[in-house]
């Protein structure tokens, strides 16, 4: 099963999906309409591209062996009720329930941290 489908099964996860690095393809599972998932994919891809550029700039300015963000592997954003966690090309919308964001991060880190190929 794909990572996003696994994530969508976790209690408290609203939806999870994956998007293509180029083009408009996306897949998702959970409580989003198709249009919302399309919008989420566009937003997550835009922020991911931006964080890749930021990590590159960061490490151009730091001795590369000491740079803690030699490559951006993902990002999170926190809202009052929901959070979004993105690693590689997978996104996950979660409710702000105690323990849930850490659980989702641990799962995504285990399965997606070493993904480098941009498909």
């Amino acid at each position: 099963m794909s990572v996003y489908a696994d994530l969508a099964l976790i209690d408290g996860v609203i939806a999870a999906g994956e998007y293509a690095w180029r083009g408009d393809r996306y897949h998702f599972k959970g409580q989003l309409s198709d249009e919302m998932a399309r919008m989420a994919s566009i937003m997550c891809r835009a922020t991911t591209l931006s964080t890749h550029m930021q990590a590159d700039i960061l490490c151009t300015n730091i001795d590369s062996k000491d740079c803690p963000f030699s490559e951006s592997h993902g990002w999170m954003v926190r809202g009052p009720q929901f959070s979004v966690c993105v690693m590689a090309n997978t996104f996950c919308f979660v409710a702000n329930q105690p323990g849930l964001l850490n659980t989702v991060f641990a799962h995504m880190r285990r399965t997606l941290m070493n993904v480098t190929e941009m498909v």
Binding site: A55, G79, Q81
Partner: peptide, 27 residues
């Protein structure tokens, strides 16, 4: 994004943004 999302979908809960995290390999 939170403003646009809430106005386009009617789903609240992301605004105001309460923080951002950049994830690196080890940090």
């Amino acid at each position: 994004q939170a403003r646009g999302w809430e106005s386009a979908t009617g789903q609240g809960g992301f605004y105001p943004v309460k923080g951002f995290t950049l994830i690196g390999l080890e940090y």
